[in-house]
Lab assay of single mutants.
Amino acid sequence: MTYKLILNGKTLKGETTTEAVDAATAEKIFKQYANDNGVDGEWTYDDATKTFTVTE
């Protein structure tokens, strides 16, 4: 399945997608991606749209 991440960081904003077997796997990938890019904030997930959002 395709999952989407919306980044609302102070210095980085944008979107990315990943292919993952489930939401938990996608979350791990996205949290590593956000960490690698210096984004740390409040996480939400919308199962209907398979979208994670992180807001600093």
Rank of each mutant, 00 (worst) to 15 (best):
M1V: 15
M1D: 15
M1I: 15
T2S: 09
T2W: 12
T2A: 07
T2R: 10
Y3R: 01
Y3F: 15
Y3E: 01
K4H: 13
K4I: 12
K4T: 14
L5T: 01
L5H: 00
L7Q: 03
L7F: 10
L7H: 04
L7S: 03
L7K: 02
N8G: 04
N8Q: 10
N8S: 09
N8F: 11
G9R: 05
K10W: 10
K10N: 13
K10P: 10
T11H: 12
L12W: 13
L12H: 13
L12A: 08
L12N: 06
K13H: 12
K13I: 11
K13S: 11
G14P: 04
G14L: 14
G14R: 13
G14Q: 14
E15K: 07
E15S: 06
T16H: 14
T16R: 13
T16E: 06
T17M: 10
T17D: 05
T18H: 06
T18F: 06
T18D: 02
T18I: 15
T18P: 01
E19R: 09
A20G: 05
A20H: 03
V21M: 12
V21A: 14
V21F: 13
V21Q: 11
D22R: 03
D22H: 04
A23W: 12
A23T: 11
A23Q: 11
A23N: 06
A23M: 13
A24R: 11
A24N: 09
T25L: 07
T25D: 13
T25F: 07
T25A: 14
T25K: 06
A26Q: 00
E27K: 12
E27L: 14
E27H: 14
K28F: 09
K28L: 12
K28T: 10
K28D: 07
K28H: 10
I29S: 05
I29T: 08
F30N: 00
K31I: 08
K31M: 09
K31E: 04
Q32F: 05
Q32W: 06
Y33I: 09
Y33T: 03
Y33H: 05
Y33P: 00
A34W: 03
N35I: 14
D36M: 13
D36A: 13
N37H: 15
N37W: 15
N37S: 08
N37M: 15
N37E: 08
G38S: 08
G38T: 04
V39M: 11
V39R: 02
V39H: 04
D40M: 14
D40E: 13
D40A: 11
G41Q: 02
G41R: 01
G41H: 02
E42K: 10
E42S: 10
E42P: 05
W43P: 01
W43A: 01
W43F: 04
W43Q: 01
T44E: 10
T44H: 12
T44N: 08
T44P: 00
T44F: 11
Y45H: 02
D46Y: 05
D46I: 05
D46M: 05
D46F: 04
D46W: 04
D46P: 00
D47F: 09
D47P: 15
D47R: 07
A48N: 12
A48D: 12
A48K: 14
T49F: 05
T49Q: 06
T49S: 10
T49V: 06
T49G: 05
T49D: 05
K50E: 03
K50W: 06
K50M: 10
T51G: 02
T51S: 05
T51Q: 04
T51W: 02
F52M: 02
T53Q: 07
T53S: 07
V54R: 01
T55D: 07
T55H: 07
T55A: 06
T55I: 08
T55Y: 06
E56F: 09
E56S: 09
E56Y: 15
E56T: 07
E56K: 04
E56I: 08
